[in-house]
Design a binder for these strands. Structure first.
Length: 537
RNA sequence: GGGCCGGUAGCUCAACGGCAGAGCAACUGACUCUUAAUCAGUUGGUUGGGGGUUCGAAUCCCCCCCGGCUCACCA
C-alpha cells in the first residue's frame, strides 16, 4: 500500500477528509471507488496516529435532473426541484427522494466498512445558516467569480450573472432560476421556462433574501464553501471533476481567491472499466452494484479498489472470465503472506497494509483473520456443482480441524458468491453440464481400451445390486479399471468425455450416483460402442 | 480540441535509473480410490514506434502511433 501510507506520511497536523455526493439515483460499482479511497486514506492517517475526521456530504439541495428516475406523472412537477423537496418515489417511508437514495448509498458504504464520522446534509447546513457567510461573500464578489470562470474554465457568463440559484417561491424549482442582481441584502431572480432543457421554470420573478436555505450557491462555490465550513484538508475526486478547467480547478480557484483559503489536497482517481469501457448500466455494459455485490463480497471489493494507485484505471472484466476467482485468490495470497505462510510469486509493496485495509473492520485482529482457513473460490465453485458433497465436511478435512465460526461465515459467504458467479459471470469452462441429449462428439476420441472398460463398467453396474452411492460407483470404477488393466486416469477421462464432453471433471462416482441409473447404463453402453469381435465371441 | 491514464509473456499485472519478473493459462512429468486438486518442471519478451539524456533506460525528456476514459451546458 504505497499510495495511502505515503500520502499519510506526507501531511502534518490533524486532518479532515471529505467527499460529497448528489443523491440522484442508484449507485453503480464504479462509483464506489471514491468512497473506498476516502476510507483507506482515513485509515492510513489514523494508523500513523494522525487525528483524522472523515466527513461525507450529501448534496441534497441539488436539482432533480434525471427524469428517468421519476414516475411518469411526477416528471412535470418535480424536475428541477431540490432533491430534498422531491417526494420519495418508492413510497417507502423516506422523507424525500434525496433521503431515499442517500440511504441507499449510506447502507452500501456501511456494508463496505466505510463509516464516516459524520454525514452532513447540505439542505440542513443551508437551513441552519451555516452557508450564509459564504453566500454573502460570493455575491459581494460576483464579478471576481465571473472572472475566475472566464479564466479557469473559459466560461463567459453574462455581466449580471450571479453564482447562486434561488428556490422559486412560486413553483419550488431551483434548477430553472437565474439571479441577476444583489443589493447587499436581497437578490433579484427569474424562474425561466427555457433556462435549462430538462426542466421548465414557471416564469416567476422577484426579490428575496438568499439566506437560510432560500438559495443555494453554484456547485463549484458550494464545494469550496464546504471546505471552509469544515476545514477540509484532503479531498479525493474523480477524474471527471479533476480535468483541466473542470470543477475542481474552479473550486480550487474560488477557495483561493474568493473564500481566501488553501484548498484541500487533491487525490484524483480513475474509474473502473469493464472490458475497457466505462461502466454504464444504461448502455448495458456495466454491472449494477447490487449485481456485483452478490458475487464479490465487500472485502474483495475493497481490495479491487484499493490495490492499484488511485490514478490508475482499473480494468475489471468479470463476464465470462476468471477475474473474480483471481480476485479471491489474490486476497487469500495476501492473507497467507500476512499470516507468515509461504506464498508463491511476488507480493505488492506494503502488502500487509493492502490486506489490513481490505478488511471491513478497521479495528479487526488482522493476524487472526489472516490465519483463518479459506477455501479457494474456484475449488468451492467446483464443489458446489458436484452432487452429494458435504461442503463443510470436505473443507474440514482439507483444513484438518473443525472450522471456526469465522471460517464458517467465510465459507457461507463464498458459497453464496460462488453460486451467484456460476449463475452469472462464470465462463462455460467453469460450468459442469451433463450432456444428456447425446454422446458428446468429444467422446469420439476414446480408444479401444477405454471403450472396452466402459462396456465392462456397464456390465458390472447392471448387476444386482447396482451401485447406489458415490462411494460404490467409485469403488466399481477402480475395480473394473484394474481388472482390464486400464490406468485410473484413462478410466476417469473416458467417463468425463462420455458424460461431460471434456477430459476432466468432478468426482466421477458421485456424479454418476446423482444421475438416473438407466441413463448412466445407456450412456456407458453407447460410449463403449458395438462389441468387439473378442467380446462377442 | 483540452485533460488524465494506459500500451511489458496468450491473459491480468509487477518492477519506476542498475541482470525484464510473478500469478493464471499452455506444455511436460509425478501422484495405483479422483484428476479443474496437489507437487515438480518447461515454454513463453526487440517492454507500442522513433529520437535524446546516461557508464547504464521498461523506468527520465521530446515527438509520434494505438486504446480508453474525461471535460468542453449543468451539477
Amino acid at each position: 500500500m504505497d499510495w495511502a501510507d505515503e500520502l499519510a506520511a506526507s501531511v502534518v497536523g490533524p486532518q479532515v477528509v471529505n467527499d460529497s455526493k448528489t443523491p440522484s439515483g442508484t449507485v453503480h460499482v464504479g462509483s464506489l471507488r471514491g468512497p473506498v479511497i476516502l476510507d483507506v486514506i482515513a485509515r492510513a492517517l489514523r494508523a500513523r496516529g494522525t487525528a483524522t475526521t472523515l466527513l461525507y456530504g450529501i448534496d441534497d439541495l441539488d436539482p432533480m435532473d434525471a427524469q428517468a428516475l421519476l414516475t411518469p406523472d411526477a416528471v412535470e412537477h418535480e424536475m428541477g426541484r431540490p432533491l430534498a423537496h422531491v417526494p420519495d418515489q418508492a413510497g417507502d417511508c423516506h422523507a424525500s427522494y434525496a433521503r431515499h437514495h442517500a440511504q441507499t448509498f449510506i447502507d452500501t458504504f456501511a456494508g463496505l466498512g466505510i463509516r464516516p464520522d459524520r454525514y452532513y446534509w447540505m439542505s440542513e447546513l443551508y437551513a441552519a445558516g451555516e452557508v450564509d457567510p459564504y453566500i454573502r461573500i460570493a455575491l459581494d464578489r460576483a464579478e471576481a467569480v465571473r472572472a475566475i470562470y472566464q479564466r479557469v474554465a473559459k466560461v463567459q457568463h453574462p455581466s449580471d450573472w450571479h453564482p447562486i440559484q434561488v428556490v422559486c417561491e412560486s413553483c419550488g424549482r431551483i434548477g430553472t432560476t437565474i439571479v441577476t442582481r444583489w443589493d447587499g441584502q436581497r437578490i433579484y431572480y427569474e424562474c425561466r421556462p427555457d433556462f435549462v432543457s430538462w426542466a421548465r421554470g414557471c416564469g416567476h420573478a422577484g426579490w428575496v433574501e438568499p439566506f437560510g436555505g432560500r438559495a443555494k450557491l453554484g456547485w463549484n462555490l458550494e464545494w469550496a464553501a464546504q471546505w471552509s465550513i469544515f476545514g477540509v484538508t484532503i479531498e479525493p475526486c474523480g477524474k471527471d471533476l479533476a480535468t483541466a478547467g473542470g470543477s475542481r480547478d474552479r473550486a480550487d480557484a474560488i477557495a483561493h481567491e474568493i473564500f481566501e483559503r488553501e484548498p484541500p489536497l487533491n487525490v484524483p482517481y480513475e474509474f473502473l472499466n469493464i472490458g475497457g469501457r466505462k461502466m454504464s448500466t444504461s448502455k448495458g455494459l456495466g454491472v449494477a452494484a447490487h449485481e456485483i455485490a452478490r458475487v464479490v463480497p465487500p472485502e474483495q471489493l475493497r481490495l479491487l479498489f484499493l490495490r492499484p494507485r488511485p490514478q490508475t484505471a482499473i480494468e475489471f472484466d468479470p463476464i465470462g472470465s476468471d477475474a473474480i476467482p483471481r480476485l479471491f485468490d489474490e486476497f487469500d495470497r495476501l492473507a497467507d503472506a500476512t499470516a507468515g505462510r509461504p506464498v508463491r510469486g511476488e507480493l505488492p509493496a506494503g502488502h500487509e497494509s493492502v490486506f489490513r485495509y481490505s478488511l471491513l473492520d478497521p479495528a479487526a485482529d488482522v493476524a487472526a483473520i489472516a490465519a483463518a482457513f479459506r477455501p479457494a473460490f474456484g475449488h468451492l465453485a467446483l464443489l458446489r456443482q458436484i452432487p452429494g458433497v458435504d461442503i463443510d465436511a470436505r473443507l474440514e478435512a482439507e483444513k484438518g480441524a473443525p472450522l471456526t465460526a469465522l471460517e464458517l461465515a467465510t465459507v457461507r459467504e463464498r458459497t453464496a458468491a460462488a453460486d451467484a458467479w456460476l449463475e452469472t459471470f462464470a465462463p462455460d469452462r467453469s460450468r459442469i453440464v451433463v450432456r444428456r441429449d447425446a454422446l458428446p462428439d468429444e467422446a469420439a476420441g476414446l480408444d479401444a481400451g477405454q471403450r472396452a472398460w466402459l462396456g465392462r463398467l456397464a456390465t458390472a453396474a447392471a448387476a444386482t445390486p447396482p451401485p447406489a452411492s458415490g462411494d460404490a460407483w467409485q469403488a466399481l470404477i477402480f475395480s473394473t479399471a484394474t481388472e482390464v488393466g486400464l490406468a485410473p486416469g484413462q478410466a476417469f477421462a473416458a467417463l468425463y468425455l462420455a458424460f461431460l464432453g471434456r477430459p476432466n471433471g468432478p468426482r466421477a462416482g458421485w456424479l454418476l450416483a446423482s444421475l438416473e441409473p438407466a441413463f448412466v447404463l445407456e450412456r456407458l453402453r453407447i460410449a463403449a460402442g458395438p462389441p468387439t469381435l473378442e467380446e462377442s465371441a
